[in-house]
């Protein structure tokens, strides 16, 4: 494993820690899109179907379990926890996320590395992850007061994507036959979705003003 990949995984993990900190300690999910969180839970469930079939490494298994457990517990907190769910900004979280699922599934049936159940589900998870951030970005645009933890959460998620691209570039040159068009194209699309957010996030940090996205 190269440094970019490890750094990517760590920022991904950090984003989850930041979000859990907000939900668990502050008991607030204000500014967080439940739709995005539901999509992530579905992404991990579809992608990690091989969890108990294919052993890659202890690191890999533990990380998969962490992402599965954290994504489902975040959804649980936002839906069921009696204090947290009251802070959920339901009125502004209106993205029709169900309409993302079917096209991603259709695309996975058409474009996959191999036409088997697990490979189709893997491709589906890659496509869905690429667009899963959209409800969150829309909600951020509608949120007047984006708190620091929410901004940091999205920033770390975006950083994870950038680092994964660097990891692929590194692997392409160091590992023979490492060609994965599906994850590369989807990953680049996913990262581009963050470009706008990154711009405003860095500007707010540089000018030391509160983060606000133009509507």
């Amino acid at each position: 494993m190269n440094a970019f990949r490890l750094a990517g995984d760590m920022t991904h993990l950090l984003s989850v820690v930041v979000l859990l900190l907000k939900i668990h300690t502050i008991k607030s999910c204000a500014g967080i899109s439940l739709k995005t969180q539901e999509l992530y839970a579905l992404v991990f469930a579809a992608r990690y179907l091989d969890l108990f079939i294919h052993f890659i490494s202890l690191y890999n298994t533990v990380m998969k379990l962490v992402f599965l457990a954290s994504s489902f517990s975040i959804v649980w907190y936002m839906r069921r926890h009696k204090i947290v769910r009251r802070t959920y900004d339901k009125d502004h979280d209106t993205f029709r996320h169900h309409f993302l699922v079917l096209p991603c599934l259709a695309l996975a049936l058409l474009i996959n590395e191999r036409f088997t159940f697990r490979e189709v589900m893997w491709a589906f998870s890659i496509y869905l992850e690429a667009v899963a951030i959209l409800p969150q970005l829309v909600l951020l645009q509608r949120t007047r007061n984006i708190d620091n933890l929410t901004g940091q959460y999205v920033f770390f998620l975006g950083a994870y994507r950038v680092l994964y691209i660097l990891n692929w570039i590194y692997r392409y040159f160091t590992e023979p036959h490492f060609v994965h068009w599906i994850s590369w194209v989807a990953g680049i699309v996913q990262t581009l979705l963050y470009a706008d957010f990154f711009y405003y996030y860095i500007m707010s940090w540089k000018n030391n003003v509160k983060l606000e996205l133009p509507a």
Binding site: D50, H54, I56, N60, E113, N167, F178, H180, S183
Partner: peptide, 10 residues
């Protein structure tokens, strides 16, 4: 190449 080898990423 076994494509499962490619799925070593999270």
């Amino acid at each position: 190449m076994d494509s499962s080898l490619g799925h070593d990423e999270l």
